[in-house]
């Protein structure tokens, strides 16, 4: 297997300000992988499962996982409304895959009654590629992160079907479908930098969104 571009790309110098405290939503999914990347970049990391744990963080990552399960648990344990309020109040949030779905204003092909936190002016189609045999990895140009392509892993991944006027597409597939977006303090990707050793999205999030908002 020849791989490609950016796998294992670690920034030589991270230049992350000291003392940034970032939460990782830890209801379900690959939150430990995100926590690991953030710690390696120099951030303090809190796993977040309760509303009061939102109080002291400078930014939040919503991991990959099953979006419908995160939605149910967030509502059951009283986390959904405080999260919405924090997003509305400008908390920087980065969502991958399920996390992108959680941040979308509109979910297409969601479950019965599935809700999102919203914030990103986009419509996201859940599981847009089909069953697991259609999951794939590929190289992706992300101009905001520099010339070196991102090696992106798509696992039963969503795509951003509509990018509203307030959001900006950061990356598209060869067929034109949007898979990474930013809108102010919110960042979302259909794929999982946290499992490929790709640090640049987290670095971008920490530098451009979390540090800037603090």
């Amino acid at each position: 297997m020849t791989i490609l571009s950016s796998v294992g790309t670690r920034p030589a110098e991270t230049a992350i300000p000291a003392g940034l405290r970032v939460g990782v939503l830890a209801l379900q999914g690959d939150f430990r992988e995100h926590a690991q990347v953030l710690r390696e970049l120099g951030a303090e990391v809190d796993l977040v499962r309760r509303p009061e744990e939102l109080d002291r963080i400078d930014g939040l990552v919503i991991p990959g996982g099953e979006s419908s399960v995160m939605d149910k648990l967030a509502r059951t344990f009283g986390l959904a409304d405080p999260l919405k309020a924090a997003i509305a109040g400008g908390l920087p949030v980065y969502g991958t895959c399920a996390g992108l779905i959680m941040l979308a204003d509109t979910i297409l092909d969601g479950m019965n009654g599935q809700q999102s936190l919203g914030g990103l002016d986009i419509a996201v189609r859940r599981n847009a590629f089909g069953s697991q045999t259609a999951s794939f990895e590929t190289d992706l140009d992300v101009p905001a992160l520099g010339e070196l392509p991102v090696h992106a892993v798509f696992i039963r991944a969503p795509v951003v079907e509509t990018v509203g006027p307030r959001a900006t597409a950061l990356a598209v597939l060869d067929d034109g479908r949007c898979v990474a977006v930013q809108q102010g303090n919110l960042l979302g990707t259909s794929f999982h930098p946290e499992i490929t050793g790709e640090y640049r999205f987290h670095q971008y999030f920490l530098q451009k969104l979390v540090a800037a908002a603090r």
Partner: peptide, 18 residues
């Protein structure tokens, strides 16, 4: 690239805590 180890193991990563 379809069906690589990373893609196969990756789905299990997303099921964690479930």
């Amino acid at each position: 690239q379809f069906g690589s180890s990373r893609v196969k193991r990756g789905l299990a990563e997303m099921l964690k805590g479930g």
